[in-house]
Every structure is written in structure tokens, then in C-alpha cells.
Design a protein around this nucleic acid. Structure first.
Lengths: 143, 143
DNA sequence: CTCTTCGGTTTCAGATCGCAACCATACCTC
DNA sequence: GAGGTATGGTTGCGATCTGAAACCGAAGAG
């Protein structure tokens, strides 16, 4: 892999999962999808592309491909790194809910185990206060 | 625009900003980029693609194109919706720092106004407790 | 043993991308 | 204000990526 911008973690993440389908595959994996067919039906993705994405996500450590319950028929599951994309998916979901739907338009939303809406994910500073982009900055960390 | 998955906010967000370059443009806008040349130099993106992305991000309400200080020479700035992508960019950045770099590899990181590292963005439930993907679920909201 | 489902791979046309060249308008210097 | 340079794009073109559909072998199901 050669990175778009080798020192920027945002760019590396986009290189790894930032295409049109990968994050939707991860979303569905978080929602219980396991088999090739699960992913294909839920996303509507073309089979060849799905095949390619499952392979790449596996190579990249986001998914693991294991033998299914019957030994054959593989299942794909999130690795710890894949499960850690939860914050990314939640951030995308919440932004979409706020800015990509007209008022009153049907959509899905995320709730906790008791069915209560998940509160907005807000970046905070080291003291715990809300952190707008303007009060943060990017610094270099030597290797 | 026709949506990949009209009811899913994750999918809509990916449709709007989920290509290879848009989020890097947004990242750079958050870091002070304003002019066409700023974005081109920082991202290294091809000019025609940058031109297209700036136009689409503007159409989609993420950027506004204003006249520059001298009247001519346009500048691109984040709209409130664009600035609200901060949580998404932070989530991508933090995942990348955790999973896309070898130990000791040089990278950039985000710090607050006092130079302290920004703590990890963690989804929480309605009570404020850390929420793993497995204890959340997606529910439908009628229009 | 046949029928259907599942998990892919192959093929091919069309869309997208990146590079390089080109162009018009600022802006800067004298 | 003339000449040179930087800026903000657009155009052309070959290379890459994508999606729809067809195809294929292996696994269940009856």
C-alpha cells in the first residue's frame, strides 16, 4: 500500500476504508451481517465488488474470514480493529441524521440497549470541554 | 442525487463526502486551507478532480464559495454543516492513529488549545456509559 | 439424484481518475 | 502600462475502477 499522505492518520484511514462501500460493509457487520449473501442483500453492492472489498478489508485487518459453523461457507467478522470503527460509523450516522435528511423524512437511528437515542459524539479537550475545530490543531509526532 | 440506501444516515453521509478526496479537503479546510491552491498543494489531488470536489462540496452545503479579500480570487470555507464534520474527521484520525501506524512511526496528531492530546471519541449510551456496537441497535424512525 | 442456494469469478461496457497541457484572469515589477 | 509570473480553473486522453449479468463449482434440501 502506498499512502495518499503518509503522516496523516485521517488520510491513512480513508485509504483503508474510505471508499464507497467499505464502511457500509462495516456498518452491516456491526448490525449482524456475517455471510457473503448477508452483505450482498443489505448493501445491494455488485458481487464482484463485494468480493473485492471483503478480501481487502480482511487483508487490512478490519475483518477476519473464518470457516462457518458447518466448516465450509465462510463467515466474515469484525476484528478488534474493525469493531473500533464504531466511533467512525456513529459519527457518520449522526452527521447524516443532522444534515442529510429533510425534516420529517424517514430514516434509521441508533439507540442504546434500553432503546434510548445515543447522544451526539462530541470531541472534547483534555479537560473535558467541548472542542470546536478552531480550538484544536494538528501537531507532528516524530517516529 | 439518488441515495445508495435512502433511509440510512451512514449511507447518505458516505454518498455526500465518502469518496477518496472530499474528507481530506474538509480536513484541510479545518486546518486553515482556503484557496484552490491551498487545497491542491496540501492534498496533492489532481486539479480537475479538486475542481469537481470543491464544486460538489459547495453544492452539497459543506463548503461555501465566497469572493476572496480582494474581491476576485474565490475562497472556500466550511459551512456550519461542514464544520460539523469535525467529529467525523476526529474519529477517522483517532482510528488511524490506533490502527494504521506501526509503533514509533512518525505521524500527526490532534491537540487542544493548550497542546494537550485530544482524548478518544467514545460513543456513550443515554446514561453516559461507554457504548460498544453490540449494545446498540438501529431502529426505524417514521417520516 | 435432482433442485436450489451460496459463494464467488469472469466478462465487458461505461464511469471515474490522474496527468499533462492549455487558457484566461489577476497581480507584481518596473 | 508592458512583461512576467502565479492563480484558478478547463480540456483531452489513456489508465483504472465500477457495476450488471452471465457463468461456475460446491453445499444443502427433498
Amino acid at each position: 500500500m502506498d499512502w495518499t499522505d503518509p503522516e496523516c492518520p485521517v488520510a491513512r484511514t480513508v485509504d483503508l476504508v474510505g471508499d464507497r462501500w467499505s464502511l457500509l460493509v462495516v456498518r452491516d457487520a456491526m448490525d449482524g451481517a456475517r455471510s457473503f449473501g448477508d452483505f450482498q442483500r443489505r448493501t445491494g453492492i455488485a458481487r464482484n465488488i463485494l468480493s473485492d472489498r471483503l478480501r481487502k478489508l480482511t487483508e487490512r485487518g478490519v475483518l477476519v474470514r473464518g470457516p462457518g459453523p458447518t466448516g465450509k461457507r465462510p463467515v466474515y467478522e469484525l476484528t478488534p480493529a474493525g469493531a473500533d470503527l464504531f466511533a467512525v460509523v456513529v459519527a457518520l450516522r449522526q452527521w447524516g441524521e443532522r444534515h442529510a435528511f429533510a425534516d420529517g423524512e424517514a430514516h434509521s437511528t441508533l439507540v442504546d440497549a434500553e432503546g434510548r437515542p445515543v447522544p451526539p459524539l462530541v470531541p472534547v479537550d483534555a479537560a473535558g470541554a467541548a472542542l470546536p475545530a478552531g480550538r484544536s490543531r494538528v501537531v507532528h509526532v516524530e517516529g
